[in-house]
Amino acid sequence: MNFFWEARKVILLSVLIYLSVKAIFFFGYVSQYIEQITLYALIVILASLGLNVIYGYTGQFSLGHAAFYGIGAYVSAYLTKIFSIENIFAYIPILFISGAAAGLIGYLIGIPILRLRDDFLAIATLGFGTLVRVLLDNSDKFSEVFGGSRGFVGIPRLTTFELAFVIVIFLILITHNLIYSRYGLFWRCIKNDELASASIGINTFSMKLMAFTYGCFLAGIGGALYANLYTFLHPSNFDILKSIDFLIIVIVGGMGSIAGTIYAGLIWVGFIEGLRIVLPAEVVDLRWVFIPLLLIALMMWKPYGLMTKSRN
């Protein structure tokens, strides 16, 4: 099939990465904790990639990305818990259902708010993010299972390294194919100039909606993998600060660069968690001083992100 033939290099590279990571895990060079962090990095990359489609490629600024990540997480947590899913093959459809749920809500909310531009859109998405956070805080009023502000407990642990790795690589490939097709081109046209896009016949609204829905879908899958990795969810994991994390990863990596998002996601998770290990106990709380300093330095050194697109 063309899909696999076209992606042969990425697939080969992924297999190599997979084997080396597996070897490191197998020979016990790293703790369980590091394994968990590696998985988390994959999840963060996936959700950030969603935001990169929305913001980096299509230019639609969103401050509510974590809300869709949260929707995916809660849907998956709910479904896997009430059906007591243990089998990984039963889990895969639930993953995609969770992604679809986040995508559907993204679609519905996108219909009114994607008519807005720039700062107005930022405010609207921020509002939606807050709305979801408050709903999650009060979710125990709908069903006890959700746990409301006490958090969602007892979620089956189903996210394995193999599953997360295969899903993330597969979705990166699909995203790549979308970006390097006429749809990706139209998204970039819209980011450049909406009026000009309309003048060549692009239905800018429906293309923006498509990018937004797809980006939310990716966030939803990321959230689902997260829920079944940590087995515990709390509404505070899905607030504006989390949205800003994704935003930072997209900007640090380079707007409109898939590779950039992957590197930045690894660096971001590696750095935050790495500092926890490296720093002596007395100053570990000060890591939120070092991280912003690093961000400032990075933005001065590479204002367009790590992977600015080469201009040939």
Partner: peptide, 24 residues
């Protein structure tokens, strides 16, 4: 109103692919 950050080639290509394209 060009797509100023897109290449010359992409500027023309976008219009052609809009006119005669393929699906998702």
């Amino acid at each position: 109103r060009l797509f100023s950050n897109l290449s010359v080639f992409e500027n023309v290509l976008s219009a052609i692919l809009k006119k005669d394209g393929y699906n998702v």
